[in-house]
């Protein structure tokens, strides 16, 4: 299992890496000496990785300062400079403690189709493997068959499920969920929520209510709000993070679908501009396909020399 995970992550990150690396290496080889044209190409590479214009400019500024300070001339050093700059940006936000003995309530939120339910299944499996007891709460009472989808996962993994019927008030489901979790002394209770576009004021208000219901009935539990973002999303992910953060306070990000060709560069502006830590990466469809985010590794995967 563990080996399979490493291999899978390696292939998926390899894809990510090759995407960014190929043009970067090409640029390094082609230009040799640092020049305005070289910088321009770097900008292009970063932008096409979804890093976004503003953060690209920030990275470039830092890079140029470093180049000036070191009096560097060869493009060959740029890779390692950029690596440490990205590292520095990504390390600025630190994730909350999620592996302690303290009982947890995880509220999982996000726009439609980012992979909330699948991520919940993975999180459940993660805690089950640690020997912790779990409970799922089907808070998506809106989308057709969402409750069934979560129910199937609960059954497969072997944890309890709290659900009402379709169309029920999500706040009421949340209340039952947190009450049941406390009564049963469950280690980790995970709340699924309906996908909602951050632009829908009504739905965001509903989410605030769900959040309030849970946080008022926590008992000794720690509440962690997890925002799920799709790595294929562009600059809009930043907007999503901003609005969800304003609504309920996001404690960390789960970045899904990083196993495609999307480069996930959007995490840079999210950390740099909002200071939200990336906690997990979703890298496949199996319940074991969840991986803790490591800034060092991510920066390396984005930029390092190919080792094979």
């Amino acid at each position: 299992m563990a080996e399979g995970l490493v291999a899978r992550l390696k292939t998926s990150l390899d894809k990510t890496r090759r995407k960014l690396l190929a043009p970067l290496e090409e640029a390094v080889r082609f230009h040799k000496k640092i020049s305005p044209e070289f910088y321009e190409e770097l900008e292009e590479i970063l932008i096409t990785s979804d890093v976004g214009y503003a953060t690209t400019m920030l990275l470039m500024e830092k890079l140029k300062a470093k180049v000036r300070a070191e009096k560097a001339e060869d493009t060959a050093v740029v890779q390692s400079y950029l690596h440490s700059i990205i590292m520095q940006v990504l390390s600025a936000a630190s994730p909350p403690e999620l592996d302690g003995a303290e009982p947890l309530a995880l509220l999982v939120v996000g726009v439609n189709g980012v992979g909330k339910t699948t991520s919940i299944a993975k999180l459940t499996e993660y805690y089950r493997e640690q020997g912790k007891s779990g409970l799922l709460v089907a808070g998506d009472t809106f989308r057709a068959a969402a409750i069934e989808q979560l129910g199937i996962w609960a059954e497969r993994i072997g944890v309890g499920l709290i659900s009402h019927q379709a169309g029920a008030d999500p706040g009421a489901v949340a209340f039952d969920g947190i009450s049941a979790a406390n009564a049963r002394k469950v280690d980790v209770v995970i709340f699924d929520t309906a996908g909602r576009l951050h632009t829908k004021v009504n739905l965001m208000t509903e989410l605030k209510k769900v959040h309030r219901v849970i946080s008022q009935n926590l008992g000794a539990r720690k509440l962690v709000n997890l925002l799920v973002l799709d790595a294929t999303t562009g600059q809009n992910a930043l907007e999503q993070a901003r609005v969800f953060h304003e609504a309920i306070g996001v404690d960390g990000i789960i970045l899904t679908k990083i196993d495609g060709t999307a480069k996930g560069g959007i995490v840079l502006p999210i950390v740099a501009e909002l200071g939200l830590p990336i906690i997990w990466l979703g890298i496949g469809e199996q319940t074991g396909d969840l991986r803790r985010f490591d800034p060092q590794e991510f920066a390396t995967a984005l930029l390092a020399e190919d080792d094979d």
Binding site: D50, T232, T233, G234, T261, A262
Partner: peptide, 10 residues
């Protein structure tokens, strides 16, 4: 998805 980033093209 209209929110897809640069990868949409790929």
């Amino acid at each position: 998805d209209a929110m897809t980033g640069q990868d949409a093209v790929n």
